[in-house]
Design a protein around this nucleic acid. Structure first.
Ligand code: MN
Ligand code: MN
Ligand code: ZN
Ligand code: ZN
Lengths: 140, 140
DNA sequence: CTGCGAATCTGCACACTTTGAAGATTGGCA
DNA sequence: TGCCAATCTTCAAAGTGTGCAGATTCGCAG
């Protein structure tokens, strides 16, 4: 996802309005590495802008995802998560505390895969589940 | 997942009761390759047993999943899907009609992965998205 | 073959996430 | 400055899944 300044330019270029709500979300998402849910962003946003609505958070995040500025991820944690990192990468989820980290995988072209016959695959995602370092330490 | 007869035995052995509802679901799931949702199974079950409740379908499927007789899958299609195939395998989902097929992947030990440091990974799932043969044909 | 009691089933309420729709507000331009 | 389409807020509702209470029934003891 581009910087708040660049996004502001891009929005203007597309004839979209620059509202304080959008600018706030640009800032909150830029460089955000914690893969927040809309609800989590709403909480944070509400501190800086009391009265902002959850609906607007959803709307803006979905718009940004449609524009390709961020990815929306269903990692099986109940709510969709939003990721400004649009690199080709994957994720690992802690089954205990839901912490999420980026995972980079290479060499996947060496996999031998059967069952995709006839399918036009447009996306491949690898999801790792387990316990994060903290939760591993606690539970032993 | 084992056969309805074997499951009946296993249930008895665990002190669980054999009810017509459970037996019906044993039959509906055995060898079922379409990865149905609880709601879909409820529809089918209702034809053969009018009055069966959706709650019981959920309950029974979850019990079977807990026993390891079937896997519950979140493939991002909105509702959890149930799979009597407990082999180590993955899935491809058609983004247009939601058809799901099994995918077998080997050679994943040759992948080079970074970002899992400290995580105790207990499960890895690969999800392919795209268009099934039928939907590919239609949309061209 | 009964009858009992614990397990199960049903029906309903509710939590949670996300979206639809209508009316109020406002950014951007004339 | 004023207009108006775009945006925001608010509220209702769809869709999935679970908790709970009371009705039913399976499995066994007598
Ligand atoms: Mn990420
Ligand atoms: Mn499968
Ligand atoms: Zn953790
Ligand atoms: Zn299809």
């Amino acid at each position: 996802m581009r910087s708040p300044a660049e996004l502001t330019e891009a929005f203007r270029a597309h004839g979209l309005k620059i509202t304080p709500q959008r600018q706030l979300l640009f800032r909150l998402m830029h460089g955000n590495e914690c893969h927040p849910t809309a609800e989590a962003l709403f909480q944070t946003a509400s501190e800086q802008m009391p009265g902002i609505s959850l609906r607007t958070v959803y709307q803006t995040l979905n718009d940004l995802a449609t524009m390709g500025e961020l990815r929306s991820l269903d990692l099986g944690t109940g709510a969709v998560r939003f990721d400004p990192n649009t690199d080709d990468h994957h994720h690992v989820v802690c089954d205990h505390c839901n912490e999420i980290r980026d995972v980079y995988v290479s060499g996947s072209d060496a996999l031998s895969i059967s069952g995709l016959d006839g399918f036009a695959v447009s996306n491949t995602s690898i999801l790792f589940n387990g316990l994060c370092p903290r939760c591993t330490a606690v539970s032993e």
